[in-house]
Deep mutational scan, measured.
Amino acid sequence: MEVRTIKVFTTVDNINLHTQVVDMSMTYGQQFGPTYLDGADVTKIKPHNSHEGKTFYVLPNDDTLRVEAFEYYHTTDPSFLGRYMSALNHTKKWKYPQVNGLTSIKWADNNCYLATALLTLQQIELKFNPPALQDAYYRARAGEAANFCALILAYCNKTVGELGDVRETMSYLFQHANLDSCKRVLNVVCKTCGQQQTTLKGVEAVMYMGTLSYEQFKKGVQIPCTCGKQATKYLVQQESPFVMMSAPPAQYELKHGTFTCASEYTGNYQCGHYKHITSKETLYCIDGALLTKSSEYKGPITDVFYKENSYTTTIK
Score class of each variant (00 low, 15 high):
2 E>G: 10
3 V>P: 12
4 R>S: 13
5 T>W: 10
5 T>Q: 13
6 I>R: 08
7 K>F: 13
9 F>H: 11
9 F>E: 10
10 T>Y: 15
10 T>K: 14
11 T>Y: 03
13 D>N: 04
15 I>F: 09
18 H>M: 10
19 T>M: 13
19 T>C: 11
20 Q>E: 13
20 Q>F: 11
21 V>K: 14
23 D>Y: 13
23 D>I: 11
24 M>D: 07
26 M>Y: 11
26 M>Q: 06
26 M>P: 06
27 T>C: 10
29 G>H: 11
30 Q>S: 09
31 Q>I: 15
32 F>H: 15
34 P>Q: 14
34 P>D: 09
35 T>H: 06
35 T>Y: 05
36 Y>G: 05
36 Y>A: 05
37 L>I: 14
38 D>S: 13
38 D>M: 13
38 D>C: 11
39 G>M: 10
39 G>Q: 11
40 A>D: 10
41 D>P: 13
41 D>I: 11
43 T>F: 11
43 T>S: 13
45 I>R: 13
45 I>T: 13
46 K>Y: 14
47 P>Y: 05
47 P>G: 09
47 P>S: 06
48 H>G: 12
49 N>K: 15
49 N>F: 15
49 N>A: 11
50 S>N: 13
51 H>M: 10
51 H>E: 12
51 H>Y: 06
54 K>W: 13
54 K>Q: 14
55 T>G: 07
56 F>E: 04
57 Y>E: 06
57 Y>C: 12
58 V>M: 09
60 P>C: 08
61 N>F: 15
62 D>A: 09
62 D>E: 13
63 D>M: 14
64 T>C: 13
66 R>A: 15
66 R>I: 13
66 R>Y: 11
66 R>F: 14
66 R>T: 13
67 V>R: 14
68 E>G: 07
70 F>Q: 15
70 F>V: 10
71 E>T: 15
71 E>F: 07
72 Y>K: 10
73 Y>S: 03
73 Y>P: 05
76 T>A: 15
77 D>S: 13
77 D>G: 04
77 D>M: 06
80 F>G: 02
80 F>W: 06
80 F>N: 03
80 F>C: 03
80 F>T: 04
81 L>Y: 09
82 G>W: 14
84 Y>N: 01
85 M>F: 15
85 M>I: 10
86 S>A: 11
87 A>E: 07
88 L>T: 05
90 H>G: 14
90 H>R: 08
91 T>W: 04
92 K>I: 11
92 K>W: 05
94 W>V: 03
94 W>M: 04
95 K>R: 09
97 P>F: 07
99 V>M: 11
100 N>S: 10
100 N>V: 09
101 G>S: 07
103 T>Q: 05
103 T>E: 02
104 S>F: 05
104 S>N: 03
105 I>R: 04
106 K>S: 10
107 W>T: 02
107 W>R: 03
109 D>H: 07
109 D>W: 03
109 D>V: 04
110 N>D: 02
111 N>D: 02
111 N>R: 04
113 Y>A: 03
113 Y>W: 08
114 L>H: 02
114 L>P: 01
116 T>R: 01
118 L>K: 03
118 L>S: 03
120 T>V: 09
120 T>I: 13
120 T>K: 02
120 T>P: 03
121 L>R: 03
122 Q>M: 05
123 Q>H: 06
123 Q>S: 06
124 I>N: 04
125 E>D: 14
125 E>T: 13
125 E>N: 14
125 E>V: 06
128 F>Q: 02
128 F>W: 15
129 N>C: 09
129 N>G: 09
131 P>Q: 07
131 P>W: 05
131 P>L: 05
133 L>M: 08
133 L>W: 02
133 L>E: 02
134 Q>E: 08
135 D>Y: 10
135 D>S: 12
135 D>V: 10
136 A>T: 09
137 Y>P: 03
137 Y>R: 04
137 Y>Q: 07
139 R>G: 08
140 A>C: 12
140 A>G: 04
141 R>H: 09
141 R>G: 09
143 G>H: 05
143 G>N: 05
144 E>W: 07
145 A>Y: 03
145 A>H: 03
146 A>N: 03
148 F>C: 05
149 C>M: 12
149 C>V: 08
150 A>H: 00
151 L>N: 02
152 I>K: 02
153 L>S: 04
153 L>W: 04
154 A>Y: 04
154 A>Q: 03
155 Y>T: 02
156 C>T: 14
156 C>G: 06
156 C>P: 02
157 N>Q: 14
157 N>I: 04
157 N>E: 13
157 N>W: 06
158 K>A: 04
161 G>D: 03
162 E>F: 04
165 D>C: 15
166 V>H: 06
166 V>K: 03
167 R>N: 03
167 R>L: 00
169 T>E: 00
169 T>H: 04
172 Y>S: 10
175 Q>A: 14
176 H>C: 08
176 H>N: 08
177 A>F: 02
177 A>S: 09
179 L>G: 00
180 D>N: 06
181 S>L: 09
181 S>Y: 13
182 C>N: 01
183 K>D: 04
184 R>I: 02
185 V>K: 07
186 L>R: 02
186 L>T: 10
186 L>S: 10
187 N>E: 15
187 N>I: 13
187 N>L: 13
188 V>H: 10
188 V>R: 14
189 V>W: 10
189 V>L: 10
192 T>F: 11
192 T>E: 15
195 Q>F: 15
195 Q>I: 15
195 Q>G: 10
196 Q>F: 14
196 Q>D: 10
196 Q>H: 10
197 Q>L: 10
198 T>V: 13
199 T>S: 12
199 T>E: 11
202 G>S: 06
202 G>A: 05
202 G>Q: 04
203 V>S: 13
203 V>D: 07
204 E>M: 12
205 A>M: 00
206 V>R: 01
208 Y>D: 06
208 Y>S: 08
209 M>L: 09
209 M>R: 09
210 G>Y: 02
211 T>N: 13
213 S>N: 13
214 Y>P: 03
214 Y>E: 03
214 Y>H: 02
214 Y>V: 10
214 Y>T: 02
215 E>L: 06
216 Q>A: 12
217 F>W: 05
218 K>V: 07
219 K>P: 02
221 V>S: 05
221 V>D: 04
222 Q>D: 06
223 I>R: 06
223 I>G: 13
224 P>M: 15
224 P>N: 12
225 C>L: 01
226 T>V: 14
226 T>F: 10
227 C>N: 00
227 C>T: 01
227 C>P: 01
228 G>T: 04
229 K>W: 11
230 Q>W: 11
231 A>G: 06
231 A>Y: 00
232 T>K: 12
233 K>W: 11
234 Y>W: 09
235 L>M: 03
235 L>P: 04
235 L>H: 01
236 V>Q: 08
237 Q>D: 06
238 Q>P: 01
238 Q>R: 01
238 Q>H: 02
239 E>I: 15
239 E>S: 11
239 E>M: 13
239 E>V: 14
240 S>V: 01
240 S>C: 01
240 S>G: 07
241 P>T: 11
241 P>F: 04
242 F>Q: 01
242 F>V: 01
242 F>C: 00
244 M>G: 00
246 S>I: 00
246 S>Y: 02
247 A>F: 03
248 P>C: 07
249 P>L: 00
249 P>E: 00
251 Q>I: 14
252 Y>L: 07
253 E>G: 05
253 E>I: 15
254 L>G: 00
255 K>W: 06
256 H>E: 07
256 H>C: 13
257 G>C: 05
257 G>Q: 07
260 T>H: 08
261 C>Y: 00
262 A>M: 01
263 S>L: 05
263 S>M: 06
265 Y>R: 00
266 T>D: 12
268 N>I: 06
269 Y>M: 10
270 Q>E: 12
271 C>I: 14
272 G>L: 00
272 G>I: 00
273 H>C: 00
274 Y>I: 03
274 Y>S: 01
274 Y>M: 00
275 K>D: 00
275 K>G: 00
275 K>Y: 00
275 K>M: 05
276 H>K: 00
277 I>L: 06
279 S>P: 03
281 E>L: 02
281 E>Y: 01
281 E>N: 06
282 T>F: 10
283 L>R: 01
283 L>G: 01
283 L>H: 01
285 C>A: 08
285 C>L: 12
285 C>R: 06
286 I>F: 07
286 I>M: 03
287 D>H: 01
288 G>P: 00
288 G>M: 02
289 A>G: 12
293 K>M: 12
294 S>Y: 13
296 E>L: 12
299 G>Y: 00
299 G>L: 01
301 I>M: 04
301 I>W: 00
302 T>P: 00
305 F>C: 05
308 E>L: 14
308 E>H: 06
308 E>S: 09
309 N>E: 05
309 N>F: 15
310 S>T: 08
310 S>F: 15
310 S>G: 06
311 Y>F: 08
311 Y>E: 06
312 T>C: 15
312 T>Q: 15
313 T>Q: 08
313 T>R: 14
315 I>M: 15
316 K>T: 15
316 K>W: 12
316 K>C: 14
